[in-house]
Structure formats: structure tokens, C-alpha cells
Design a protein around this nucleic acid. Structure first.
Lengths: 198, 198
DNA sequence: CCTCCACTGACACAGTGTGTCAACCATGCC
DNA sequence: GGCATGGTTGACACACTGTGTCAGTGGAGG
């Protein structure tokens, strides 16, 4: 039975994250203590850490699930589709989550918080490195090449690089730029290198 | 007069880093405390932090200067040189420092420590992100394009991605692979996208 | 009603990073 | 030689993070 306790736990976790994000964005990441976040949410510091392992996690974990979804999208694309198109679709899903219709104002604050806080940016990049390894395996399987071939790895790295560039430029524009168009422009640069190795 | 005190300070810092790296690599990063490192170096924890701001810094700062050198190399390349060649030379310098003749056994241990420790890997990527911004400015100036053009940014990101891929594969081979040849193979994948935009 | 279980708060603890202060030591000046 | 001085160090103290442990509490189900 996952129903009641499980759902309540997830609900509390989401509300806690909401309060934390609001407080961190308003006051600044470094100067905000976990005790303050916990107090704002009406709980003890110990209980906070039962929901999120660290102060970084409460911000980053929002994006942690996206990696898994991106992998699913890539795996679901038709096998005959060129890598450039399949990767563009996968990245498009991620950029839509971060900068799309979901909740632009809130997500812009979160993205700016991550990109503007060194320790959070570091965790963000590390998270991406983990996703990169998984995506590489998926793409290599799609193309039917062995692990010695560098193309799948480089293709995935390039795609994630396009994601980063688009996300940064979107944040730099205060959310006024079109994230999908930025992604298209980044992929246009990469496109000549994204053709499968004959 | 920077001579005596300054040089002694730097000398102590280098020996301290050497001891720290040896201890961290032998025992493991997470389970080694700063007190242990300080004790092994015959000093107090407070004094350790006068040389390195954090336990991460004593490892990462070894690579921090490389970013500056890479920027210098890129800026020194002839202006008429194609971006692919200039970037290849800049990255070649970095990969040579990390995996070249300098001290293969020691550097392999350091690289494996960084790549195998999440918090260090995160700092490493963050450090690289900082270098990326500077290199982008240099390349954009070389090409005489404005900041709206994505090519310089994407080209630098691709080059750093080639660096990462080569470094990881070199570490995975336990240092037996040729780092420059790995870099060449990575750049071969990127090459079609590294031509300047007409 | 009673049992069991998940959740919580209240400690305690190890570890990190920083501020502060007194002691020390080498250099340079009188 | 004596002495001021600036840099270095160790010894605290402090705020903060993250974790282990334990007792209390409240609800779900027998």
C-alpha cells in the first residue's frame, strides 16, 4: 500500500521544496541556513534532512528526474531517425521543463539561483555528467556501435552543451528569449558534426 | 620584496599539497579529515586553511592555473589559424599537463581521485565552466564576431568536451592510452562543426 | 482497545570553515 | 646588542552542516 503515507510524504516534500526555493531565491543561497528553511516550513532541521539530504539537494533534485525523462525520450525516438533529430527532441524536452510553459517565473528564479551560485552550479554540472553517461549508452545502442567509438559520447556531450548554452542565454535574457529557438541555434552549430559516422 | 617570505610560503604550500594528495589518494577522499592531513604535514587545521580554503581546493587548485595557461595559448595562436587547429593546440596543452610527461603516476592518481569523487568532479566541472567563459571571449575576439553569435561559445564548449572525453578515457585505461591520440579522435568527431561560419 | 509502524523533535556528535588573540620568529633599524 | 615590526603559527571559540540515536506521538488496522 503506497497510497496514504507515501502520497502525504511526497506532498510535504514538495511544499517544503517550494518554501525552501522561495526563501533561498529571496535571501541568497549562502546566507540562508537550513535551520531557517526548516523553521519557515515549521519543522526541525533533522526533519528537513529526512526529506532532502542537503541544502543543495532541495534545489537540484528538482532537475534530477529530468535526466531520467530525457533518457526515456531518446530511447523512444524511432531507430531510423538521425542522431541530430533524436537528440534535439530529447534536449527539447529538458529545455521545455526548465524554461518552458511549466511555470516560467518560478523556474527562472530557480535557474538563476543555480547558475549564479557556484556550489549549485557545480552540482548541476555533476548531475548532467551522470545523465551523459546514461544517454551515451542509449545512443550507442541505437547506432549499434561499440564503446570504443567516440561518436555516441561526443554527440551526447554536444547535445548537453547545446542545452547549457540555451539555458544560460535564456536566463541571461531574464526569460524573454524563446528557449526552443535558442536550442535550435545551438544545434545548428553542432549539426555538421552530428551525422552518424557513415 | 617578494623574495623570501613569498617563496617560502609557496614552497610550504606545494609540499602540503603533495602530502595531502598522497594521503587522499591512499585512504580515500571522504574518509580523510582535514585534521589528518594537517597532522601528516605537521601543522594545525587552522594553518592548513591558511594555505587552502577547503579540502577540495588542495586537489582542484592544481588544475586551476591550467585554465589561465590554456587561455594564453589560445590567444597566442596566429589569428589566421582555423578555430579547430587553435583550439586543438590549446586543449593539447591542458591534456599534456594532466596526462602528459609531467609526472604520469602522480597525475593519474590525482585525475582518478577527481573523476571518482563526486564533490571533486563537480568542482572540476565548475572550474571548467569558468575557463569556458574566458576562452569564449578570446575566440570571439579572434573571429571578430559579436556576443550574439553562438559559434565561439559552442566551439569552446566542444573543445572542452573533447578534453573531458580524452581525459576520462585516459584515466579509464589506467594511463596506458596515448592522451594526444585520444584528443585527436575526439576532435575528429567535432571537426565538421568547428569551421568558422563563412 | 491494543498493537504496530511511520513520523517527528530533541539531543549528541564529528567534521568543516572562519574570526580572534596571544606567542613566536626573522628581518631590519637604532 | 637591543628593539620594534610584520608575517606565521597554534589555540581556542563559534556557526553551520549532516548523521546517529532515542523517546514520544499519532494514526491504521487487527
Amino acid at each position: 500500500m503506497v497510497s496514504l503515507a507515501e502520497r502525504k510524504r511526497q506532498l510535504v516534500g514538495e511544499e517544503l521544496r517550494e518554501i525552501a526555493l522561495q526563501l533561498l531565491a529571496a535571501k541568497g543561497y549562502d546566507v540562508t541556513t537550513v535551520d531557517e528553511i526548516a523553521a519557515a516550513a515549521g519543522m526541525s532541521r533533522r526533519t528537513f534532512h529526512r526529506y532532502y539530504a542537503s541544502k543543495e539537494d532541495v534545489v537540484i533534485q528538482l532537475l534530477a528526474d529530468v535526466g531520467e525523462q530525457v533518457r526515456t525520450v531518446l530511447a523512444a525516438r524511432p531507430a531510423a531517425e538521425p542522431p541530430a533529430v533524436a537528440l534535439r527532441q530529447a534536449v527539447g524536452m529538458a529545455i521545455d521543463f526548465c524554461a518552458g510553459h511549466h511555470d516560467p517565473v518560478k523556474m527562472l528564479a530557480v535557474v538563476r539561483l543555480i547558475l549564479g551560485t557556484p556550489s549549485l552550479h557545480a552540482r548541476f554540472l555533476e548531475l548532467q555528467a551522470g545523465a551523459q553517461a546514461e544517454l551515451t549508452a542509449v545512443l550507442a545502442a541505437r547506432l549499434g556501435v561499440d564503446g570504443d567509438d567516440m561518436f555516441p559520447e561526443m554527440a551526447v556531450r554536444m547535445a548537453l552543451t547545446a542545452f547549457d548554452a540555451a539555458l544560460e542565454r535564456w536566463a541571461a535574457s531574464n526569460g524573454s528569449a524563446d528557449p526552443q529557438e535558442l536550442t535550435d541555434r545551438a544545434f545548428a552549430v553542432l549539426e555538421p558534426a552530428l551525422r552518424p559516422p557513415a
